[in-house]
Computed example of a mutant assay.
Amino acid sequence: MINQGLVDIKKVDSTLLVELKYSTTDNFVGKDVYGDLTRAYLQPAMARKLARANKLLAEIKPGHRLLVYDAARPNSVQYILWDALDMPARQKPQYVADPKVGSIHNFGCAVDLTVADENGTALDMGTHYDYFGPLAYPRTEQQMLREGKLTTRQIANRALLRRAMTGAGFSVNPTEWWHFDGMSRRQAKATYGIIR
């Protein structure tokens, strides 16, 4: 990744927390698919945006930091995730990008993350990372609140994350509260090469 011009996000902002979920078994695949990749990398411009989001978060909520679950992802891993997702092919792109097209992660321009408190503990967002369903959708939060499936605190925590990320120029994913794009797939593809 370094050879492709990406940077370790901790070198841009050492206060960011990193726990790459695909370097553990705590993910929807249930296995470590990253092997020796344990650092989070992004394109330099995206890493600087993320550092701005982390700074904004600390201003809004002192002592809180961003906790990164995934960043740049090799396209070879995208194939593993695509194949592991057990649902009809027409539904898969809602949750995992088709590796033939490439995820924005595959260009180093997307990040999955949450907010951690003063102790480094992730805030309660109502679902775990990689939860596939309406409970994780930002667009259905008010409905989930009315149905008693999300609490006002969980929604406030998600809003805090979105405020910091959008304030730094990231865009929200409609089906995953944890996923943010630094640019569109078309822009990423035109600007950067895919990470193999």
Rank of each mutant, 00 (worst) to 15 (best):
R153Y: 12
E118V: 13
N106M: 07
R139D: 13
A47F: 00
A110R: 04
Y137M: 05
K49T: 11
T151G: 08
D32P: 01
R162L: 10
V115P: 07
Q154W: 00
L67K: 13
Q143K: 14
L42R: 03
T166I: 02
M46I: 02
L37E: 11
R48N: 13
E147T: 09
Y95F: 09
M46H: 01
Y34D: 09
R65D: 02
Q154I: 04
R162W: 05
L150R: 10
M144W: 00
R65I: 01
L161S: 06
N106R: 12
Q94K: 15
L113K: 05
H64M: 07
G169C: 03
A53K: 00
L57I: 06
F132I: 08
K49C: 12
A89G: 14
D130Q: 09
P93M: 09
P93N: 12
K31V: 14
L37H: 03
W82P: 04
L145F: 03
D83E: 15
Y137K: 03
E118M: 13
D98E: 10
A122D: 02
P138G: 05
G63M: 03
N54L: 03
P174I: 08
M165Y: 02
L81G: 04
R73M: 15
A71Q: 04
I80R: 14
L50N: 02
E59G: 12
V77C: 13
A110C: 05
Y69V: 01
N119F: 11
L161I: 07
G148M: 04
N119I: 08
C109W: 04
D98C: 11
A89T: 15
G63H: 04
L85Y: 11
K149F: 08
G169W: 00
T166L: 06
R153I: 15
A116P: 01
I155K: 08
Q78F: 12
Q94C: 13
K55F: 05
T166E: 09
P44W: 08
Q78M: 15
V68M: 07
T114I: 12
Y131D: 01
P74A: 13
V96R: 00
A159I: 10
T152C: 13
A116N: 09
F170L: 07
L123D: 01
R162Q: 11
V172I: 11
L145I: 08
L50A: 05
L135R: 10
N106P: 09
H64L: 07
K49I: 12
R48L: 10
G102C: 03
V33H: 06
M165P: 02
F170K: 01
L150K: 06
L66H: 05
T152D: 11
V68A: 02
N106L: 05
Y95H: 06
P138N: 03
R65F: 03
Y79N: 15
Y95L: 05
H128A: 12
S103H: 04
P174N: 14
R153G: 13
A156I: 02
G126S: 00
M87Q: 12
Y79R: 15
P99V: 15
S76T: 15
A53P: 01
G108P: 03
V77H: 07
C109S: 08
Y95V: 01
